[in-house]
Design a protein around this nucleic acid. Structure first.
Lengths: 110, 110
DNA sequence: ACTTACGGTAAGGTATGACTTACCAAGAAG
DNA sequence: CTTCTTGGTAAGTCATACCTTACCGTAAGT
């Protein structure tokens, strides 16, 4: 496997929350400081900060300080890991025409 | 957008739990009845049943009754929706060389 | 220096989620 | 018809997740 299990775990968990996924989408659309992000959501700024930490720990975003501001931006490698993971399943799912229901029925006299 | 938000939501949430993702992987590898799945996990059979319900509601698996058995198998459409979603982001992330950190720095005299 | 802007972290409340055991319905088998 | 197998569901426990307010440190502006 080319990915780290821990990374995939945290990436899925990070994107599972709708609010946090929306934050991620906003960061992908445009690199932004925390306050600018928070102004587009109904939840408080600390909540956004916490979401950004989760996304950061999952390797999906990174940041750079500029004065007192923290500019968050997307990490392509994070998305890539998820894509690779799902593509692997996709290949297997395509191949599993013969590991699917039909195969089970055939092998179990049903 | 070609996908349903609700579907993506539930799919990410479904795959966020490590145990449930392992169940999903097992179902992808081979269609199986519930008991056979449960025998490969340390958690109880009802727990597996509940995980399968979540996966089913997320459109990632489906089932077919054979006698008293319920054979679960993977739904390719479920995986496809996730792939499409991530690929959309990927395209955007590739294009965002100019919506990334550099752009923000440029536009904000920093 | 003082004040304001920005944002990370702590503490705590509340909801959700994953798991357990107990129970029940339905089909297969004797 | 009775018995065993299979598996879905209910009820309850316990941990985790998300949010809030309060607080603090740091940099910028006047």
């Amino acid at each position: 496997m080319t990915y780290q299990e821990g990374t995939i775990d945290s990436a899925f968990a990070a994107l599972a929350d709708p609010t946090r996924r929306a934050v991620f989408e906003a960061v992908i659309a445009e690199a932004q400081p925390v306050g600018m992000l928070a102004s587009n959501f109904t939840v408080s700024r600390p909540a956004i900060s916490q979401h950004l930490k989760v996304l950061s720990d999952a390797g999906l975003v990174d940041r750079q300080r500029v004065g007192t501001r923290n500019i968050y931006f997307a990490r392509r490698e994070g998305l890539q890991a998820l894509r690779d993971y799902l593509n692997g399943f996709w290949d297997q799912a395509l191949a599993s025409y013969e590991t699917g229901l039909d195969k089970w029925l055939k092998e179990n006299k049903a």
